[in-house]
Design a protein around this nucleic acid. Sequence first.
DNA 1: TATGAATGAGCTTTCATTCAT
DNA 2: CATGAATGAAAGCTCATTCAT
Lengths: 195, 195, 195, 195
Amino acid sequence: MIGVKHNQETIVRGIVKEIFLKSALKVFATNGYHGSSVADIAKEANVSKALFYHYFDSKNDLLVIFAKQRLEEWNPLLENLETLEDPKARIKCLIDFVLSELETRADWLRFLYMLYLSKEGISAIQEAMKKYQRQFNRLFAAERKLYRDLGYANPDDEATYLRSVLQGICLEFLLSGGNYPLKAIKEKIIKRYLP
Amino acid sequence: MIGVKHNQETIVRGIVKEIFLKSALKVFATNGYHGSSVADIAKEANVSKALFYHYFDSKNDLLVIFAKQRLEEWNPLLENLETLEDPKARIKCLIDFVLSELETRADWLRFLYMLYLSKEGISAIQEAMKKYQRQFNRLFAAERKLYRDLGYANPDDEATYLRSVLQGICLEFLLSGGNYPLKAIKEKIIKRYLP
Amino acid sequence: MIGVKHNQETIVRGIVKEIFLKSALKVFATNGYHGSSVADIAKEANVSKALFYHYFDSKNDLLVIFAKQRLEEWNPLLENLETLEDPKARIKCLIDFVLSELETRADWLRFLYMLYLSKEGISAIQEAMKKYQRQFNRLFAAERKLYRDLGYANPDDEATYLRSVLQGICLEFLLSGGNYPLKAIKEKIIKRYLP
Amino acid sequence: MIGVKHNQETIVRGIVKEIFLKSALKVFATNGYHGSSVADIAKEANVSKALFYHYFDSKNDLLVIFAKQRLEEWNPLLENLETLEDPKARIKCLIDFVLSELETRADWLRFLYMLYLSKEGISAIQEAMKKYQRQFNRLFAAERKLYRDLGYANPDDEATYLRSVLQGICLEFLLSGGNYPLKAIKEKIIKRYLP
DNA sequence: TATGAATGAGCTTTCATTCAT
DNA sequence: CATGAATGAAAGCTCATTCAT
């Protein structure tokens, strides 16, 4: 019949989309957004270039999708920060969250840093970001409260400082090419905040 | 006299080259290397696209030049680390060096992080890097010696840690969009290492 | 019984084909042949792109079909011109035929003019045309006879002239955007040929 | 010196632009706007595809340029219609203007008819048209005055009618493939309006 | 029948680079 | 030195068409 739609096909669609996203992430992490062509992504996924446009509206579409995924990724941490009573448990949670699974998230992080660093990149995903502004604010508030509960004199600076340290560790991890002493560094920082 | 004329030309050449490099840096920091065209650079410098090729062999040439400049920039620090007696003076010197003039070096840093993060980018300038490997080794040795002199149990990890913290501060500074409490953070870190 | 089923299928097939043709005509009239994609046609018909190829061999197929339909459309007029005795009745018939139902035939006309105007377009349907050459010749002969019977000195030029006038009216009607004084113009021309 | 511009080079620019426009017109007249690629135009002009974009912003740019040229073409006629005293001279002028040089303007006309016929085409050049609305109004007013001066009862319809006839002649001329009796038809129409 | 998946070829446009002046 | 002209290659994206289900 004319007009009949098959529901199960969305499953295939979802799988293929995921393959594309993974491939895109890989090549983006290698060459950056502008340095990666849709042809590169398709090649990585072993399909034709044209198929990409069967699943996404544009190359830029990927940025929006990635931004959304990234922001949703922070939800579990946010929940923990807002519900856990013990501030020490909270800060442990925060450190663990940022530094865990760095190996598997390497492509992800590499790409995000590049994206954030380029001014253009930021404006490209700003609209997508706006929707999540409230979420960001909640996160920052939770962080401030954490340092207040920990008894720090200057919660804002303290939040900034730990954020910087954690980002720095992630960054150096990515730049080190595989021989970063992550375990030792992590112990060091945990010992400092949870004596 | 011929020599004089030659010299003058070289000076002008150097100035124009510098203009190009500065313009390139600016657009690279905005759009990344692949996202910036030679036309963009020329437009930023208010000259014709073709003139670029009177001063540089290719767009890729810029990467090599930037890498060299960056590495030579570290020479004064290296000299200080190797000659200063007092380890406290040395670590103060290191921190000051990395965190000073972040505002004016912002484009520079932004671009370098992007470059280092992209795997491909690194390979593009790897050759240039090789020549300076010896210099890198000297720097790392000086760092290790510093932490040994300061009495740390694990100088290697200690070097890695401080490097991560400083990089993290620079990174967050770039990402913060102008409201990073650099002064407070710097005081904080100096107080920690130089009690 | 098998025959009946076959017949029903043919009827359904015919209906769906007609839907496609109507949709095609609409988008062709809007964007021209080259400016309209099979996807556009399918969308207008609310079916999938692939279904189109169950009913037609190719997009170009549509041109041939349209050309045939157009030519067969002229059959009733031809019959009248050849059988009616009174030349005045014949010319009235001709004018009425060309200028009637312009509103409903607008898409049709718009597309045909575009097709005829494009040199390439004509060659695409020339083969289909050849089969109908005999019919054209009959039409032209009937026209000449008409003007001879009406007593005109130069029947050929007269035929060309009236054809031009009628085409011009159709064209201006299409270009006017809905406010063409068709009735007045038609009266004017009829009064001239049938005083 | 940096920043020096050469004035005479605009001459070359103008010539090459003209070549491009002529080539574009030729291929547009054959295949229509959507049916002609920038590659086709460049091939017709015997230059590289990329050079096109050195002279024009986009393919659509050509439409705007053509529309403007077309409208300016009518200026001499407009001036004559507004200044000539004798209405008979005016209508002679109008007929001559529209039907003269049909052979050399064939590509032009063919393209314009296709453009006007496609609804999309019209909207593409509407903005360019708006600027010239005043000119159109002047032309229509001059036409109305002409038929009033000639003593016609219904100047508006009369203007529409003659416009239709002239358009029809042009159209049939284009469709006839070279054997249109233009001279005879023109005499016929002139005799009718200037007895 | 009817659909979504899939693709090669082609389109518009951009870019790094070269060349004549 | 400095420019505009010019181009081959490749980018993002579309399209007519085929195929498996």
